[in-house]
């Protein structure tokens, strides 16, 4: 069973057996979303912004975990004390693989709202256990994700340099994952609209809003029946 713990914003932890992967443990308004002492095997930041890298270095150092990210994120993590031997730079479309886990990054980007232009960002196609998770991080483009076979697709919906609701819904409709999960919303209305539109226009897709500190459990019952539970 895969457990997906949501911390808020774009921060998640994926737990499968002994593997714990933390995604984008960002710092927002000066406060970390994920506790420094959160125990993880792998910490991933999809871009170098504070709201993605955040306290990833602290978590990685405390847990002696691997840090994964694009070059910008890796540089930042290194500055913050992650040992070089625990750093792994993710290259677009080059998978990172350990037992029960395969992460394939894809080159995406987000808008840099403070300085203009774009910030490189990686979308992650995560095969963990027997589940396929799409995690777009902070992105305003969809890249190849509409063509990937996914059980769970986690997309930003806030519109502040990343997908607004309409583009997140549009990607869900095209990609047809089993579950569509919104993240990084700017208002409480964003995830509700996402869920409403996906339910209405995404035939066969179930929207799931995970509130911070809730856990989404997904598994294959009898090996072929997809089931999920939100706790």
């Amino acid at each position: 069973m895969l457990k997906i713990l949501y911390f808020g914003k774009t921060s998640f932890a994926l737990r499968y057996n002994e593997i714990v992967v933390v995604l984008n443990p960002g710092i927002w308004d000066g406060k970390p979303i994920v506790p420094d002492d959160f125990s993880a095997r792998i910490v991933v930041a999809t871009n170098q912004s504070d709201d993605a890298v955040g306290n990833a270095a602290s978590i990685a150092v405390n847990s002696k975990a691997w840090f994964l990210g694009n070059q910008g994120a890796a540089d930042k993590a290194s500055e913050k004390g992650v040992k070089p031997w625990l750093l792994h730079v993710l290259k677009p479309e080059v998978p990172y693989e350990v037992p029960d886990l395969k992460i394939t990054p894809y080159e995406l980007s987000r808008v840099d709202e403070s300085e203009g232009g774009r910030i490189e960002n990686l979308g992650l196609y995560i095969e963990i256990g027997n589940m396929k998770i799409g995690y777009l991080g902070d992105t305003e483009i969809r890249g190849p994700f509409e063509q990937l076979d996914m059980d769970v697709l986690i997309v930003p919906v806030g519109g502040d340099g990343v997908f607004p609701v309409k583009d997140a819904v549009s990607l869900c409709i095209d990609a047809k994952p089993r579950l569509g999960v919104p993240m990084r919303w700017s208002s409480d209305e964003d995830p509700k609209k996402f869920a409403k539109y996906v339910q209405q226009f995404g035939q066969g897709i179930t929207p799931v809003i995970i509130e911070p500190d809730q856990v989404l459990e997904v598994h294959w019952a009898a090996g072929n029946e997809f089931r999920y539970e939100l706790n």
């Binding site: 774009r118 305003e140 483009i141 969809r142 890249g143 509409e146 063509q147 583009d167 095209d174």
Partner: peptide, 8 residues
């Protein structure tokens, strides 16, 4: 390809 977003 079915779709390319701006910037893709």
């Amino acid at each position: 390809w079915t779709r390319m977003n701006p910037g893709d």
